[in-house]
Write a protein that binds this DNA or RNA. Structure first.
Lengths: 254, 254
DNA sequence: TCAATCAGTATGTCCGGACAATGTGACTTC
DNA sequence: GAAGTCACATTGTCCGGACATACTGATTGA
């Protein structure tokens, strides 16, 4: 007699292509993630035990475990020893990513516009030199941009980059985000250190963002490092809080 | 003739205790992390190949790989196929954690003080009900706290909790953080959705935080979920930007 | 002299198995 | 009827090996 499961074990149609160059565990992870996204795998439902899943797919258990683990790391699945693996109930969107404002806006369907105010070389101030790890008074790129959405200014972005990393053309900066340019130049971003705060707008800031002097502004400073540990970007940004806020999901480090 | 390595392969004294209940890969990961922290493993230095490392420790390669992988996930190491595994150059502190303000302050050596303003049950507004996933007008906990540092108010915290999860005693709330209480009550936190923004202080907010009306405030809203997907907390917080800002490290999801 | 080729080395992927630890539910016992 | 006990299911850890893939540097060739 079949048990009336409260959290039923879902039977999925899964398959892997062994001739594909895509790793098997990755194929499986993608299919599981798609099934969760699509609703085939409902929250709370059990995934079926790993051994049986492996034999059904003709895979080994380590491979299946690797696929499941990657989704656990993403916060989509939860494993319980002695119980099984189940789909997380809550609406996990996406964890905090190192994304540019441009990408954020674009994925929100906003089609952002950028106006490059300054694109030049300057000698590094003490603050910039310390952040980028370059000698004081050495030459660095300085970029100032205004980000607009629906024709309204939304953020004022001021960035500093060490020399020689990539050539920054104003036209490109207006067409896409800075991170995308860096990735395209072969730089592998690794980590970033951010500080988010707030302060009252100075008269100059207020004018740039069409706010009143003294109006509250959201501020963010960031130093980004590539995987060799070099600082590749230092930015000081101010946002109009009525137009933008930082929204993200974060997972508990178990 | 030995090659003059620019990034030398470091020979560490590593050992594992097979009689310990602590997993072997975890023991190894801890020792490696300690060596990085301590400076024995300098940034840029190679870790030596996995096979040799495994045989030297009497472990299998999968176990060594699991240890290394956990540190890669933490952003401490970088693997390069055909090259080796090396210590990341930049100053990785810690990635963004789901930490309470209390823990943040305490780890900064600030010894925070908490003043509980309100600790009662209220009927859920539409906003609170939606965030917690409970019926509208059902009873929920409402907690209002003032967080002080050096005798000065720093943040005003307003939280809502679903009923029955834990009993909130004012004395406990003044002695420790909310997250610590929840963990102690057997709740396993899983993820949270946060929004950080800014706005001008209302007269009431200004008075609570001893600011002027209209002064910029840093705001944060958060819904926290446990590993079953239940919302276990909804909070609306305001911070004095002169006293507090959000600072964190984040890693690139490769 | 410079470019293409190739061997060496390291990580990436995958396999099949073994035993341990833990949570669940049914069974037994008082 | 309630509490403790035990078997079962499932994930956690670990092993030893095999081949694929990518990066590096030296050798070879034009």
């Amino acid at each position: 007699m079949p048990k009336p499961d409260v959290d039923p074990t879902v039977q999925l149609e899964l398959s892997v292509d062994r001739s594909s160059p895509v790793p098997l565990y990755f194929q499986l992870a993608q299919q599981l993630e798609a099934a969760i996204e699509h609703g085939t795998l409902t929250p709370g439902s059990l995934l079926g035990n790993e051994i049986e899943l492996a034999s059904r797919l003709g895979l080994s258990r380590p491979t299946v475990r690797q696929a499941i683990q990657s989704l656990v790391d993403k916060g989509l699945l939860v494993r319980r020893r002695g119980v099984g693996t189940q789909v997380v109930h809550s609406q996990v969107k996406r964890p905090l990513e190192l994304s540019s404002l441009y990408d954020d806006l674009e994925s929100a369907g906003q089609r952002p516009a950028t106006k490059v105010l300054v694109n030049t070389m300057v000698s590094a101030s003490a603050e910039v030199a310390a952040a980028l790890g370059v000698p004081e008074d050495s030459e660095v790129h300085r970029i100032e941009r205004l980000r607009l959405a629906h024709g309204e200014p939304m953020a004022y972005l001021c960035n500093f980059l060490p020399p020689g990393l990539l050539d920054l053309e104003t036209a490109q900066l207006e067409a896409t985000g800075l991170y995308r340019l860096m990735r395209a130049a072969g730089i592998t971003l690794h980590s970033a250190r951010q500080t988010i705060g707030a302060r009252a707008a100075t008269p100059a800031e207020a004018e740039r963002l069409t706010e009143e002097p003294g109006a509250p502004l959201l501020t963010m400073q960031r130093v980004t490092y590539d995987d060799t540990g070099r600082a590749v970007e230092y930015g000081t940004h101010t946002y109009r809080p009525s137009r933008y806020s930082f929204e993200f999901q974060l997972l508990v480090r178990s």
